[in-house]
Computed example of a mutant assay.
Amino acid sequence: MSRPDARRVADTLLHYPACFIATHVNPEGDAIGSMLALALALESLGKEVVCYDRHGVPENCRFLPTWERVVTELPASVPPLVVYVDADRLERCDLSVDHFPHAETFARIDHHTSSAPDPGPALVDTKAAAAGELIFELLPLLDVTLTTDIATCLQTALMVDTGRFSYTNTTPKTHRIAADLLAAGADVPAIVDWIWGSVKFEATRLLGAALSTLQRSADDRIAWAVLRNEDFLSVNATPEDTEGIIDAVRAVRGVEVAALFSEKRGTIRVSLRSRGHVDVAALARQFDGGGHVKAAGLTFDGTMENAICAVIGAIGAALEDQP
């Protein structure tokens, strides 16, 4: 039996002959996989779909079916239905309602917490391991057949956001969905090879640069690393090459909260990870960021030094509130 919010979003998607789908900046496998899966599903119903991400498709996702379709600039004409996926608000896509003066409806499909009201129908489940789980839930409501291409996109979404089913957000439901996707022909070997099995030389060197800056707090409960613009330039790396670095910082024994500070495209991006005692999503919202209890991020306006001081200070204060 479907949930009312899922039914409402499905009915909205079915009502419009065309839609515009966006996902968050600096996207990864869940964002791109979920967006492409939804686009393929809607196109199977004869609808027109535009897929958008300001930063485009990261290199490790350029095996997903129809990834080339994703545009990085807003088209001159946007369909009346705007859908944003894997983002708690349009601003996470570097967009706002003002970008769509002719839009009739906005719909959100997401698994992040949010303090902002949704501008339209929303399918939100913070217990879902990935946005891909919610797209999967919509397929029967849309009367869409689970194809091999859709399955590969959704399996990528699940595997990325669960760390190949190793994170604590993985549930029995996640495994059941993954089994259905595998039965439908999801190309798991390709997913593993592209996402984890093949790392760029530049990305490996960037990991070394980040770990050379690794620091810990006096009580060893916080660890952080820093990447500046010159670090990217010195190894010819791109912002997407930071993928996975935060996990190496989090792996330090005794660390409860990890942070990676990186200058990306002229701004300072901060990735946060927690072992569970600190809600890093709540911490990130102090800086207009967001995410999950154990994984979140934010963008800081200011100098790197001020970012480190402010964020590490906030983490320390949050840890002081823990028993």
Rank of each mutant, 00 (worst) to 15 (best):
G29D: 10
G29I: 15
G29E: 08
G29H: 13
G29S: 13
D30R: 15
D30Y: 13
D30L: 14
A31E: 09
A31W: 05
G33Q: 13
G33K: 15
G33Y: 15
G33C: 12
S34E: 12
S34R: 06
M35N: 11
M35G: 08
M35Q: 15
M35A: 10
L36M: 11
L36H: 03
A37M: 12
A37Y: 14
L38W: 14
L38Y: 15
L38K: 12
L38N: 04
A39S: 14
A39E: 02
A41D: 11
A41S: 08
L42F: 10
L42D: 04
L42S: 02
L42Q: 01
E43A: 06
E43P: 01
S44T: 11
S44I: 03
L45E: 01
G46V: 06
G46C: 07
K47H: 10
K47G: 09
E48P: 11
E48K: 11
E48A: 09
V50K: 06
V50P: 00
C51H: 07
C51N: 06
Y52W: 14
D53A: 08
D53F: 06
R54C: 02
H55L: 00
V57G: 00
V57Q: 00
V57C: 03
P58Q: 00
N60Q: 05
C61S: 00
C61P: 01
C61H: 03
C61V: 00
R62M: 04
R62L: 04
F63V: 02
F63T: 02
F63M: 02
F63G: 04
L64Y: 05
P65Y: 02
T66I: 09
T66Q: 05
T66M: 02
W67E: 00
E68M: 09
R69F: 15
V70N: 05
V70C: 05
V70E: 07
V71Y: 11
T72K: 14
T72G: 12
E73H: 15
E73K: 15
E73Q: 13
L74C: 07
L74T: 09
P75E: 12
S77K: 14
S77D: 12
V78G: 07
V78I: 15
V78A: 01
P79N: 05
P79Y: 13
P80M: 10
P80V: 09
L81Q: 02
L81C: 06
L81Y: 06
L81R: 04
L81M: 05
V82H: 02
V82C: 01
V83W: 03
V83F: 06
V83R: 00
V83Q: 02
Y84V: 03
V85P: 00
D86E: 11
D86S: 06
D86A: 01
A87C: 09
D88Q: 10
D88N: 11
D88I: 10
R89K: 12
E91P: 00
E91N: 13
E91Q: 14
R92C: 13
R92T: 09
C93V: 06
C93G: 08
C93S: 08
C93N: 11
C93T: 05
D94K: 14
D94E: 10
D94P: 08
D94Q: 12
D94F: 09
L95E: 02
L95S: 03
L95A: 04
L95Q: 01
L95N: 01
S96V: 11
